[in-house]
Write a protein that binds this DNA or RNA. Structure first.
Lengths: 274, 274
DNA sequence: TCAAAAGTGTTGAGTCTACACCCATGT
DNA sequence: ACATGGGTGTAGACTCAACACTTTTGA
């Protein structure tokens, strides 16, 4: 009987026809408008990182950072590498959000993409757009509906929209498809929407929102993050009580902001209680 | 300037080194013990489908159904095909739950697996294990803890356990690794755990539980499914009130069960309310 | 008859929302 | 001084777990 060793010696993986594997990353951060008053907390905006493609296919269209997975790295490692290459910063949160594998999603051939969501702290100096490149942060907003969604992108004077509709594909999996020609390369509009819906859902229950902030933060900052992501505002007094379950005091205080200083908090490590 | 067409003609995707792409599917169904009393509702058990490998690598070990993604199908389609080949039944729910891409997860070479969770209705006659084959349904139970989990598998007189511990890999992604040698092939124990944790979390909020049942069901049946998945029992009166949000009456009644007949319900189509 | 499930009602504890109110700060 | 956010308190609405109780069936 053939041993596993002999079997493996006779096995040549290269001789099989197979798709290529890429990864695309939706990188989020939260940025501020310029403040109109020295006191007033500036409005926060959710932004994502896009790259203007310099090469075919989809030359001159905006696309998510991403690329092929190398033989010596895992898929999340590849995603990390892409983010680092584009921003110079290590992401704090990296979350897988699905495989995109439509047969014609890439004109170069059969390429499967594993999509990731990634969050950068807003105090990190992400260098996107500064180095030679064609990369930049777009403010993004989502108008969601029962079975339809419009995403708007804005960066300086560039602005565009994508409309997507919900459809059911294989065995109850919902996915979204772009209506009309996409201003984005590949199926990246669909990837962005899938990613955002997950992010928003989690944000309601205090998931991922800490990843947008430095390790010490005020409750108001945390509330701004949640509100920016969910699009819903809540009374500060009530937010404070809900959040208390997830945070602990550091003892340090904020200051210099033209109003009463606030306690700085840190994320509390959760124990799944019984 | 080179056109996209010219570019694509000169692009040869086959000439790049690349991983292979597989998919593995965790197929769940709920089965019953034989009843001891004609009246009593038999105990329900969560089961998953495993295949005994007839070939290297991991010959004679139990593994998830799965295989390579073909060039003419999407990844979820490949997952569907695998399930259909093994059970003869079309799954109702198919959910992506991550990429498994450790460099050494498969001794044949660099193979990335996209894992799916799949649910079969318990009235479907899944043929697993009957046709020539070495496939079968294992009752499965999970003992979860803060950072550790033991999974037990039972089928007739075959029984084994796997222990896994939580660890943090890339940028805050949690994943699990098997302690000691796994009784399962590849990293399938880790895939099963990841899948189950998602399933259980969703089941608490009435996600996926309908996929285990036929289109018309009693509230008690629905409650059994939820309890089987979450491991928590709730008072029938309270369950009934919570579930009412997700179901609607059909007008039909169950009967012939040695006790008062129950209204049959169906899943209500949700509208995301404002 | 009776065990078992179907189904309704109620009570008390806890949670959430909205709002009123006072505090501390930098310009 | 004062606008602005920090922070506490509370009344009323709502939610939820627990449990008592009645109904209906097939053997």
């Amino acid at each position: 009987m053939e041993s596993e060793k002999t079997y493996l010696e006779g096995y040549h993986i290269e001789s099989y026809d197979r798709p290529s594997v890429a990864t695309d990353v939706v990188v989020y951060t939260i940025r501020q408008d310029d403040s109109d008053s020295f006191r007033k907390d500036p409005q926060k905006k959710l932004s994502i990182l896009l790259i203007e493609r310099g090469e075919h296919p989809f030359k001159n269209k905006w696309a998510l950072p991403g690329g092929f997975v190398r033989m010596d790295e895992t898929v999340p490692e590849a995603a990390m590498r892409e983010v680092r290459e584009e921003t110079g910063v290590n992401p704090t949160a990296l979350v897988c959000n699905g495989v995109f594998s439509n047969l014609n999603r890439d004109p170069r051939g059969r390429i499967i993409s594993n999509a990731f969501t990634c969050i950068l702290k807003n105090d990190e100096k992400a260098t996107a757009g500064t180095d030679a490149s064609n990369a930049g942060w777009f403010d993004i907003s989502f108008a969601t509906d029962n079975d339809c969604c419009v995403i708007s992108f804005t960066k300086d004077d560039i602005t565009f929209e994508v409309k997507l509709t919900k459809s059911e594909s294989t065995a109850g999996m919902t996915n979204y498809s772009t209506v009309g020609e996409s201003p984005l390369a590949f199926d990246h509009a669909e990837i962005i929407l899938t990613s955002f819906l997950q992010l928003r859902e989690r944000a309601e229950s205090f998931g991922y929102i800490f990843d947008f902030l430095p390790s010490e933060f005020t409750l108001a900052e945390l509330q701004r993050v949640q509100e920016t992501l969910t699009g819903r505002v809540s009374a500060a007094a009530n937010f404070r009580r809900k959040a208390s379950e997830y945070v602990e005091e550091t003892g340090n205080m904020s200051g210099g902001a033209g109003h009463r200083p606030a306690m700085l908090y840190r994320k509390k490590v959760q124990k799944d209680a019984e």
